[in-house]
Simulated assay, not measured.
Amino acid sequence: MEALETISTRALSELEKGARGKVIKITATGELRRRLLDMGVVPGTEVAVAGAAPLGDPIEVKVKGYHLSLRKKEAAAILVEHLK
């Protein structure tokens, strides 16, 4: 019997600079959810943390070839599978 890989799921806001992840789920609702989806943050999309402001908020992520700045609270509503 094959061992199943454990999926390391965490909020996008928890990833450190240079880390990559694949969007699993967006827990935000309403206008924020629509805005994230419109910007290309959809399940299955790969994202990478490009950096953060000096005090840690907002963070900059690279998604679909462009850079996007998100507040920590907004990034916390995006669940990702941590990629190695």
Score class of each variant (00 low, 15 high):
R10P: 02
R10M: 14
A11C: 03
L12G: 09
L12C: 10
L12H: 04
L12V: 08
S13D: 13
E14Q: 13
E14W: 00
E14V: 03
E14L: 02
L15C: 04
E16R: 09
G18P: 03
A19T: 05
A19H: 04
K22D: 06
V23P: 00
K25L: 14
I26E: 01
A28E: 06
A28Q: 09
A28L: 08
A28W: 05
T29F: 04
T29N: 09
T29L: 09
E31S: 08
L32T: 11
R34W: 12
R35K: 11
R35S: 10
R35C: 01
R35I: 05
R35L: 07
L36W: 10
L37K: 03
L37I: 05
G40P: 14
G40K: 08
V41G: 06
V42W: 03
V42I: 13
P43S: 12
G44N: 09
T45Q: 13
T45E: 14
E46P: 03
E46D: 14
V47L: 15
V49S: 05
A50D: 15
G51R: 01
G51A: 09
A52C: 11
A53E: 15
P54V: 07
P58M: 01
I59F: 01
E60V: 07
V61E: 02
V61I: 15
K62H: 08
K62Q: 12
G65R: 12
Y66M: 09
H67G: 12
L70K: 04
K72V: 07
K72C: 05
K73M: 10
A75F: 00
A75L: 01
A75G: 02
A77Q: 10
E81M: 09
E81L: 05
